[in-house]
C-alpha cells in the first residue's frame, strides 16, 4: 500500500472538552488510518467518543493534541478557507441527527454541497437526483424535511454525504432510524462507494451493520482497545453449492 492510498490518518489524536476539574477526555491518543477501498466501523458504548472521533476526523473541531491528515493535508496547517474547501470536496458527513436544512427541499439539501462548491443548481440537480434515487427517494425530491419520516430524512442525509463522489464518507449511526431492509440498502450503497475507491468510517451500535466493514475498531473511554479485521479469504465460501 502506498501513502497515496491512505485517505485519512489520525496520529495520537486526543480531544478534551472543557478544562480543569470538569474536563472530559473524549479521545485519548487515537491512531487510526483509512485507505482507499476501506470501510472502517467504530463500535463502543455510549459516550466512548465515537462521534467526537468523526468530528475531529472531518476537521469540524481541531483536536487538543495529535494530528489529522486528510489526503495528505495536515489539517492543523491548512488555512481556514482551504480547510473548508477540502471538507466540501473530499468529505461527506452523515450526522447522528441528520442536520438537514429545513427550508430546503430534499433535492436542494442534497445539491447544496455541490452548489457551495460553485456548481450551478441546474448542473447540481442531476447528480443530486441520482443520489436520491439510490436511496429510493427520487419521488420525494421536492419535499421538505418536515414532510419526511425520520428514516427518510436519514436517507436524504446519506444521499447528501455521497453526492459528487467524495472520497471520504464519515457516517454517524446512518442506519439508526431505519428498518432492517432500508438499513441494508444504505449499507449496500456505502459499501459500493467504498468498493469504487472511496474510504469510509461507519459509527454504529449494530453488530450486523458493523460486520459490513473491512475493519472494526472498538473504542472504550476514548481509546481504541481492540480491532477486528476480516480475513481476505473466507473459508465459508467453499460451502457455496454450484
Amino acid at each position: 500500500m502506498t501513502d497515496s492510498d491512505i485517505l485519512l490518518q489520525l496520529d495520537g489524536v486526543s480531544m478534551q472538552y472543557g478544562r480543569g476539574e470538569t474536563a472530559i477526555t473524549a479521545l485519548a491518543g487515537v491512531d487510526l488510518s483509512v485507505s482507499r477501498g476501506e470501510l472502517v466501523a467504530v463500535m463502543g458504548a455510549s459516550g466512548s467518543g465515537k462521534s467526537t472521533l468523526l468530528t475531529v476526523a472531518g476537521g469540524l473541531t481541531p483536536p487538543t493534541a495529535g494530528e489529522v491528515i486528510v489526503e495528505g493535508h495536515w489539517l492543523s496547517q491548512l488555512p481556514a478557507r482551504q480547510l473548508a474547501t477540502l471538507r466540501r470536496r473530499s468529505l461527506g458527513f452523515v450526522f447522528q441527527d441528520f442536520n438537514l436544512i429545513p427550508s430546503l427541499t430534499a433535492l436542494e439539501n442534497v445539491s447544496l454541497p455541490l452548489e457551495l462548491d460553485g456548481w450551478t443548481s441546474k448542473r447540481a440537480h442531476r447528480p443530486a437526483l441520482d443520489a436520491l434515487n439510490i436511496v429510493e427517494l427520487g419521488d420525494r425530491a421536492q419535499h421538505f424535511p418536515s414532510d419526511l419520516s425520520g428514516g427518510q430524512q436519514q436517507r436524504v442525509a446519506i444521499a447528501r454525504a455521497v453526492v459528487g463522489g467524495r472520497s471520504l464518507i464519515l457516517a454517524d449511526e446512518p442506519t439508526g432510524a431505519l428498518d432492517s431492509t432500508t438499513g441494508e440498502l444504505v449499507l449496500r450503497m456505502l459499501r459500493s462507494r467504498v468498493d469504487a475507491g472511496a474510504g469510509g468510517i461507519l459509527v454504529t451500535h449494530d453488530a450486523r451493520h458493523a460486520a459490513w466493514a473491512d475493519r472494526i475498531v472498538f473504542l472504550r473511554d476514548g481509546r481504541i482497545v481492540d480491532e477486528s479485521r476480516a480475513s481476505a479469504v473466507t473459508s465459508l465460501l467453499s460451502g457455496l453449492p454450484a
Binding site: 481492540d226 473466507t234 473459508s235
Partner: peptide
C-alpha cells in the same frame, strides 16, 4: 468480554462477506 467480542465480530464479518458475495 472484549476478546470474545472481537472474535465474534470477526466471525460476523466473514459470514457477512460470504453472504454479500452471493
Amino acid at each position: 468480554i472484549q476478546v470474545q467480542r472481537t472474535a465474534t465480530m470477526r466471525t460476523l464479518q466473514e459470514l457477512t462477506r460470504t453472504k454479500n458475495a452471493t
